[in-house]
Design a protein around this nucleic acid. Sequence first.
DNA 1: AGATTGAACGATTTGTTGATTATTCAGAAA
DNA 2: TTTCTGAATAATCAACAAATCGTTCAATCT
Lengths: 207, 207
Amino acid sequence: MAVKDTVRECIVDAAKKRFSHFGYAKTTMAEVASDCAMSPGNLYRFFPGKLDIAEAIATEDYSRHLDHLRKLAIQPGKNARDRLHDLLFEELRRTYHKLERDPRAFEMARVISQERPSFANWMLENERKILIELLDEAERRGEFATADKQFTAEMVQSATMKFRYPQLWSKLTLPKLERELEGVMNLLIDGLCPDAAARHSAARAAE
Amino acid sequence: MAVKDTVRECIVDAAKKRFSHFGYAKTTMAEVASDCAMSPGNLYRFFPGKLDIAEAIATEDYSRHLDHLRKLAIQPGKNARDRLHDLLFEELRRTYHKLERDPRAFEMARVISQERPSFANWMLENERKILIELLDEAERRGEFATADKQFTAEMVQSATMKFRYPQLWSKLTLPKLERELEGVMNLLIDGLCPDAAARHSAARAAE
DNA sequence: AGATTGAACGATTTGTTGATTATTCAGAAA
DNA sequence: TTTCTGAATAATCAACAAATCGTTCAATCT
């Protein structure tokens, strides 16, 4: 099985180079195969199709990002508000920069999220797990209080949808998006009700 | 000027019929012109282009909707939470049903929001005005408290973006969208902080 | 046997051509 | 003059052919 994994790695590696050089659409299976010194047909013993190679690349890259998010969510010495802030902002910034600087990455994101909606779902689920942990920890410390944390996490994601794939949904610049995310986040935490404002400014003053 | 308005009306009326029968793309300017017994060139004395006729139709329709929203926002005998609820839900439901039942309406919505982003912006602004009034009134009654109402209204819109053109952004069914909007709205009002839950259940119990 | 190939197949894309259509504008009609 | 026309124009679309490419699988190799 070790050999099989090495071959898979070779394929993913070759595809990664081609995709980022020439783009997903302009890369042919025959090219990837010849980069790995094999026939096109043989690729299909390792991946069900072209899109699955792209998905493998995306998964690899995304896993690193997830690890980073996990660290942000359990930072000691920060309160829940700040950890949630770091989490949501990191997500916005990384996606924004990635898609901004690299049109190939943008193409791949578009293709995958179009042809494999389940992938976007899987990402949401992973991040939701992190969110739930954050909410759990926050409740233990008495910072947040929520009845159904699973549901609450879903709602936080729903309300911040716009910041997940920023340039698929709007043409706003990063500073504008950041200002908006900041505002939405504060609203989600403090709510619209009277005591919220007081609570919030009291917390700020205490720092 | 009265004559000009009558002609405009005739054009809009003919276009409305054609668009809803055959679709925007399949309707030609020559057809609309002949419906109004004029030459195609003459249309351009009344509208800068085809898209502007579509925009006029959309504006007319949307204005009626806006009036309805305004009424919902100032309903006497309802608290701010319920009025906000009615406002956001009405918006979700009307758009959902309109686009669901009528593929022509869907086509027009897609074309206009693609080619005229400023139109979507104008709609958002109008609804924001209503939201701000609602927030104002709620503050007077001591139900909500917000520092900058203009900004807060923007943030409420940002967080509920997903429910504004439901079928452009997701494939969720109406019940699922409603469940999600309900959750997001409660979060926006009550926030994540401890006293929120207590506040909320107290309010419910008092009814 | 199992692993690999590469020609064959069907789907998709590309390139090309001709027609359709939005828009303009010189001039006719009022 | 002002209002309108309809032919001219340029852009877009539709249709078809050719080529390309993802995928499969019978045959070949190890």
